[in-house]
Design a protein around this nucleic acid. Sequence first.
DNA 1: GCGAACGTTCAGAAATTTCTGAAGACAGGG
DNA 2: CCCTGTCTTCAGAAATTTCTGAACGTTCGC
Lengths: 156, 156
Amino acid sequence: MTGETERREAAERLALTLVGVGMQRMGARALAAFLFSEKETLTAGDLAEELGVSAGSVSGAVKMVAQMGLIERVHVAGSRREHFRMRDNAWTTLYTRQHSVVDEVLRAVDEGVDAVGPGRAHDRLEYMRDFYAFLLNEAPVLVERFEAQRRGRSRP
Amino acid sequence: MTGETERREAAERLALTLVGVGMQRMGARALAAFLFSEKETLTAGDLAEELGVSAGSVSGAVKMVAQMGLIERVHVAGSRREHFRMRDNAWTTLYTRQHSVVDEVLRAVDEGVDAVGPGRAHDRLEYMRDFYAFLLNEAPVLVERFEAQRRGRSRP
DNA sequence: GCGAACGTTCAGAAATTTCTGAAGACAGGG
DNA sequence: CCCTGTCTTCAGAAATTTCTGAACGTTCGC
């Protein structure tokens, strides 16, 4: 356990890493804020304060992270603010979704396979297609295996 | 089998899809050029002509795609030009490498786990860490399984 | 219904990324 | 050892992305 400053630094480091991996800056910072918060839910105002950015930026970031399926809106009676919470299965969901990206690639490659006659190009494209199809099939299996393993561990 | 125009269009579509998935534009176009070429190897000049871009752009794109491990330099005696060729195991290599990106994230999350005391944040971070660690372990297994399956299929 | 508190949208500023073209480096043949 | 063809580097132009701030909606308590 350590101080507040170190917590924020670790959060910013993780956000930076996620940016390096291709995530939008503001989305990554918002996500890190959720991960590192002791609260169950955060409001847009909380995020704006924690990150030191405008309400507009928060709105955009939240929209994106929600679309990724990592957080969800929570209706809280008696509060006029909208609350957001990290979803329980955020990471496995993200992984699965990234594989719908794989699906897009697969489609494009498939068109390619149809568009060229026999030859080297055709062979290359087929190989690529086979691998991506394989990945697409295996992703859900992998996730299922992780969840099973985790269930097993938590109930010894 | 179809005409040259359709082949190029399919190549451009695949490149665009790869860009949508996060790849740099020029790198994606170069990669598509390799995939769709009937030649075994391409030179920087070939690429410049095929893509209609400057030598400088080609140099940068090739450098990047080579760093991703998708193509390799080929020394050809009697030619002053440098030739490049798609590597046989390009896609499985790419997949494995993307998981060294996972490794980066894993490290950052791990720091986070150490930086916060017990509580909700700690639990969230641990969950994320466990999933990414699981992925990192499973990636090579998956690739191995694909290759085995492919070997099996090609020698019935 | 009114007013206040929040959230969202959007035009434009700022930052970042990407491409080019020109200059330079390098290798091999003559 | 120079000359030519080829690749790389780099400063700056162009395009794209990202952030902000202000104006506009919306919702809830009263």
